[in-house]
């Protein structure tokens, strides 16, 4: 039973990740789709006029697809730099499902790296709203 649940969870993780990649690709590369399915404008930005850490994320991925790295970095540097980490996660999900000798207990990342992620997001959140670091702002 436990083994079945483990296999189910691993497959669910992989399928979810693949579906998200396909959805993001189509969403970013199809302007017509972006007009139909339009996420509401950021409530945080509307209320305070400040940028949240994900602001400009879609634009950054779109500029990356166009091969425009400087504009992608200006739109959302955090989204661009987090792509290698996301790629590692996708590879780990693939390995969990397709490599029988690789189990969940084999995934090892230093806790310091993992805990630095929310800290990095909060620092990025603060810094991109400062006038001096306006180059991190997509607006």
């Amino acid at each position: 039973m436990n083994l079945h649940a483990k296999i189910w969870a691993e497959r669910a993780l992989l399928i979810f990740v693949l579906v998200m990649i396909v959805l993001v690709y189509f969403y970013v590369t199809t302007p017509a789709l972006r007009e139909v399915i339009r996420p509401h404008h950021c409530l945080f930005y509307q209320a305070t006029g400040l940028l949240c850490p994900a602001c400009g994320g879609t634009r950054a991925i779109g500029h990356l697809f166009d091969g425009n790295l400087p504009l992608a970095l200006k739109s959302n540097a955090l989204a661009v730099f987090s792509l290698p980490a996301i790629a590692c996660g996708v590879l780990a999900a693939f390995r969990l499902v397709f490599d029988p000798s690789y189990g969940p207990s084999d995934i090892r990342i230093s806790p310091y790296w993992l805990w630095s992620l929310p800290v990095l997001i909060i620092i990025f959140w603060i810094v991109r709203n400062l006038t001096y670091f306006s180059f991190l702002s997509p607006i």
Binding site: A54, P104, I109, L114, P118
Partner: peptide, 26 residues
């Protein structure tokens, strides 16, 4: 002890809860 998956889960949950009001999809 290897708590990587537990910490990934906790960190993702914390970031998700922090960002729910501005980036609901994320």
């Amino acid at each position: 002890s290897n708590n990587t998956l537990g910490i990934i889960s906790l960190v993702a949950g914390i970031i998700g809860v922090i960002l729910f009001f501005c980036c609901s999809y994320i």
